[in-house]
Amino acid sequence: MAVEVQYRVVRNGIEKMTFTNKKEADAYDRLLDLAEHIETVLEQAPVSLNEQDREALALFLAQHQAELSGPKKTPARKAAKTAPEAAKAVA
């Protein structure tokens, strides 16, 4: 008989997800915290969303938070940005 440790993420008495890794469970719990905060902000938005759509949008935005923080600078973008500055210095 094997012993298996499980970490359950529970919100409002409803089990949302089960993990075998505590780190993953904590990360998902933080994601749900962020989604809950976003949903609270969306309640005050100038558009009306029903509760189900607001919850779905809040979770989507929380899952894509890295993309919402703005475009990432790639080495090519950095080089393109600094090239005009370098040309000014040479001239």
Rank of each mutant, 00 (worst) to 15 (best):
N12K: 13
L49G: 01
P84L: 05
Q6L: 10
E43F: 00
E43A: 10
V3R: 13
Q52A: 13
Y28A: 04
K22L: 14
Q63M: 15
D26Q: 11
D53Y: 02
T74D: 09
R30V: 08
A56H: 03
P75G: 04
E43Y: 09
Q65W: 13
A56N: 10
E85I: 06
E15I: 08
E4M: 07
V5R: 10
E51N: 05
N21G: 02
A58M: 06
E4I: 11
K78I: 15
D33K: 10
E24A: 11
Q52F: 08
E36G: 12
A66G: 07
Q6K: 10
V3I: 10
L42M: 05
A45T: 00
A66F: 03
L68W: 12
K22H: 11
A87R: 15
K88G: 04
D26R: 12
G13L: 01
E39S: 14
Y7L: 03
A56V: 05
A86P: 01
L31N: 10
A27F: 03
D53Q: 13
E24Y: 04
E51Q: 03
A76P: 00
T40V: 06
V9D: 02
L59C: 02
L32Q: 09
R30Q: 12
E36P: 01
E67V: 00
V3N: 09
Q44W: 03
Q44I: 00
Y7E: 01
E51V: 04
R11T: 08
E24V: 00
L61C: 07
T18Y: 02
